[in-house]
């Protein structure tokens, strides 16, 4: 069995930044597809007016999901954008439910 040396895993969150080329490579999308996802409102550049776009590294997750859904379910762009919007909404609601459950005191059963 091969054992590798421990490497530091990097957060995919709002802190890190990636370029269009890096985002395309990490998500398996073409750069044009990344730009199309920006046009559809699925991906948001850090500064849309900057001459060359950058994205938070959290966008890698959205772009990868977009790539998988497009490839695996053969979704057309608008259906893809809608699916991603609904998935994000579900994720937010699930996080709210988890938060509310955490706030509830455990009730002792008689």
């Amino acid at each position: 069995m091969r054992v590798d040396i421990a490497e530091e895993a990097l957060w995919l969150d709002e802190q890190g930044v990636v370029t269009v080329a890096q985002l395309a490579r990490l998500s398996g999308l073409a750069e044009d597809e990344v730009r199309e996802l920006v046009d559809l409102g699925v991906l948001e550049p850090c500064d849309p007016h900057a001459p060359s776009w950058t994205f938070t590294s959290r966008c890698v997750l959205t772009a990868r999901a977009a790539g998988r859904l497009r490839r695996d379910l053969e979704l057309e762009p608008h259906a893809l954008a809608l699916a991603l919007f609904l998935m994000e909404r579900i994720g937010e609601l699930e996080a709210r439910v988890r938060g509310l459950q955490a706030r509830l005191a455990r009730i002792e059963q008689e």
């Binding site: 069995m1 590798d4 421990a6 490497e7 895993a9 990097l10 957060w11 995919l12």
Partner: peptide, 25 residues
Amino acid sequence: RVMRTIKARIPPGSTDGKRLRLAGK
């Protein structure tokens, strides 16, 4: 098929569902 053991250092500050990337692994 080869079984690989990959060692990863997870930095402090994980929360449930948090995502990380190990480049090249």
